[in-house]
């Protein structure tokens, strides 16, 4: 199997072309929203916490929250691209039907769509990383690189989960539920704005299952908490496992739905 086969690249090129009209808005959003967030959190909330002499495991609030903000941007961007547009591709504008009338395969459609969303996710990630750098949010250059690396893994693994679910469902109300009750809580309770161990113990396993927590926490460990560095390989394996399972499921679901 050629991961970047001709058909996959054709899907990516198609999706990029189709999205170029809203590129301006997207860029403004990926640039302005981190500036606003960082200003409010890092500078506002952070200075409050730091002024109290509190640090999180010896780390200032801005440095603590930066990896989480960047990783969650990757997550939310791919979710936006791989939920409603996927269901719509089957039900409303039927672009998957049009693609499948050509020689390309369901697997190529899955990969092309996922890679396109990941490219968008990574573009947002890189912009965010630069903005964080301007605010002094990285403890080191490697820290920023680790964050981009884990954002990519997260975009692929979380993205394929969204794609899989959205290819399976018939109604967009299920997607709305998923977004409100899975994606949003993941965003809030994955050690994003506060450390997972401040949560009641019975809620902490939710964090351990969260792909976002793995990406964020591993970046933190590799950046400034070396005693937790053992988490990184586990997270990588965990994220790759999720990716593999949901990729295979997605190809099956796409094949079934397109050949019905």
């Amino acid at each position: 199997m050629n991961i970047l086969s001709f058909g996959t690249r054709a899907v990516i090129a198609h999706k990029l072309r189709a999205s170029k009209d809203y590129l301006g808005t997207v860029f403004a959003e990926t640039f302005l929203s981190p500036v606003a967030y960082l200003f409010a959190l890092g500078v506002g909330l952070g200075s409050l916490i730091d002024a109290n002499g509190q640090t999180i495991n010896g780390i200032g609030y801005l440095q603590f929250v930066a990896p989480a903000l960047v990783c969650s941007t990757a997550m939310l961007t791919v979710a936006g691209e791989l939920m409603w547009p996927i269901l719509g591709g089957f039900r409303w504008n039927k672009i998957f039907e049009a693609m499948f009338a050509t020689p390309i395969s369901p697997a190529e459609i899955v990969r092309g769509t996922l890679f396109f969303a990941s490219i968008r996710g990574m573009a947002a990630t890189v912009v965010y990383t630069v903005v964080v750098w301007a605010f002094g949010g990285w403890v080191s250059f490697e820290s920023a690189l680790w964050c981009i690396f884990f954002s990519l893994l997260l975009a692929l693994s979380f993205g394929i989960c969204c794609l899989c679910l959205s290819a399976k469902v018939e109604q967009d109300s299920i997607l709305t539920l998923f977004y409100r009750f899975i994606v949003m809580p993941l965003f809030l309770f994955s050690g994003t704005f506060f450390s997972l161990d401040t949560l009641p113990i019975y809620l902490q396993p939710i964090g351990w299952l969260s792909p976002l927590w793995h990406a964020t926490q591993s970046t933190r460990a590799l950046s400034y908490w070396p005693e937790q560095a053992w988490l990184a390989p586990i997270s990588i394996i965990y994220l790759l496992l999720i990716f593999t399972v949901f990729y295979l499921a997605s190809v099956r679901i796409f094949t079934r739905r397109l050949t019905k």
């Binding site: 054709a10 198609h14 189709a18 039927k94 020689p103």
Partner: peptide, 27 residues
């Protein structure tokens, strides 16, 4: 060559781009 009963053009693309993108799927 396939003409489905319900049009499934890509609304986000221009007229010529719909032809272009489709042609690329055939390599």
């Amino acid at each position: 060559g396939v003409v489905p009963q319900a049009d499934n053009l890509d609304q986000e693309l221009k007229v010529w781009e719909n032809l272009y993108v489709y042609g690329r799927y055939f390599g």
